[in-house]
């Protein structure tokens, strides 16, 4: 029955607060790799849970972004009368990625707190929780692309092969979201205010990002040379939205340089977030 006879006592533990950040980050990444099966199960459970009690069920993945797009179309083209040509498609470059980002960030922030009873009963690497939350959102984004296909039926003249680049832009967004989600998931365990503040920050963030408007070309809302431009361009979503828009609105390739820089920064941020998470992880069972 017993497995390996040569097993000895577990090695003496190195206290978490005396480990170096890089070692902690490496340990966190190793745990994510080792527990990929657990992450997969959690993603599956998450997908089954969302929309499980609704009449349209999984169809909501597609209906939801379309309705949201309709709301913005009414708001901007009817009320403000500022719409750019082919506005529904123009908007969709922002609506779908933003829905992915905001729900995912919210889920990741809550992920640790939502499992508090389990954390007090089983010893497992807690970092799988925000990881699973962010990954589950990715699936909903992918399904939401069907909605993009539906919108294209009305704007076929805008369709170019560049839409095939969407997964690459999404990968950059994924790394960025994962970094934020892991950090916020850890912080929210200590201060529940985080999730309350987050909701409003995320909304403001959207309006400050070129989602309903653009920074590019003849329709630029904030023209070239305006003092606010450099500040607005510090926002990662300025580059993400404009990249999505380039490829979906038929404006050619995305800004590759911006994407590469953003990816590298996100990777650094991710390592820092994982190290932070690992550093505070032992406290979860004590404070939750």
């Amino acid at each position: 029955m017993t497995s390996t006879p040569s097993e000895a006592l577990s090695p003496p533990r190195v206290p978490t607060n005396r480990q170096r950040p890089l070692a902690l980050a490496a340990q966190g990444f190793r745990e994510l790799l080792d527990r990929r099966r657990l992450i997969r199960y959690l993603v599956g459970a998450d997908l089954k849970r969302t929309h499980a009690d609704t009449i349209f069920g999984q169809l909501w993945w597609i209906i939801d972004p379309l309705l949201q797009m309709a709301v913005y179309v009414v708001l901007v083209s009817v009320i403000f009368q500022r719409a750019t040509p082919d506005y529904p498609l123009f908007l969709f470059a922002a609506v779908l990625p933003w829905k992915w980002f905001s729900t995912t960030l919210n889920d990741a922030t809550q992920s640790v707190v939502n499992r508090q009873s389990l954390i007090r009963q089983i010893q497992f690497p807690k970092i799988v929780l925000p990881m699973a939350a962010v990954t589950a959102g990715t699936v909903s984004f992918a399904i939401g692309l069907i909605a993009l296909g539906i919108v294209y039926l009305f704007f076929l003249h805008r369709l170019t092969p560049w839409v095939l680049v969407i997964p690459i832009i999404a990968a950059v967004q994924y790394v960025f979201t994962l970094a934020l989600g892991i950090a916020l998931g850890a912080l929210n365990a200590f201060y529940r205010d985080v999730s309350n503040v987050l909701r409003h920050v995320v909304r403001l963030w959207f309006y400050l990002s070129p989602g309903l408007w653009t920074l590019q070309g003849e329709h630029a809302f904030v023209p070239e040379g305006h003092w606010a431009r450099p500040i607005l361009l510090l926002n990662p979503f300025a580059h993400l939205f404009e990249s999505y828009r380039s490829v979906t609105w038929g404006m050619g390739p995305p800004d590759w340089l911006a994407l590469v820089v953003l990816l590298l920064l996100s990777l650094v941020l991710l390592a820092a977030a994982v190290a932070l998470f690992k550093r505070v992880e032992p406290a979860f069972a004590r404070i939750l």
Partner: peptide, 23 residues
């Protein structure tokens, strides 16, 4: 589940607790 603030715990093999009913 709780990390020691001080001192050391070393255990042999697989540790199981029956705390986990339905968790």
């Amino acid at each position: 589940i709780l990390e020691p603030t001080e001192g050391d715990i070393r255990t042999f093999g697989r540790v199981s607790t029956l705390l986990t009913l339905g968790a």
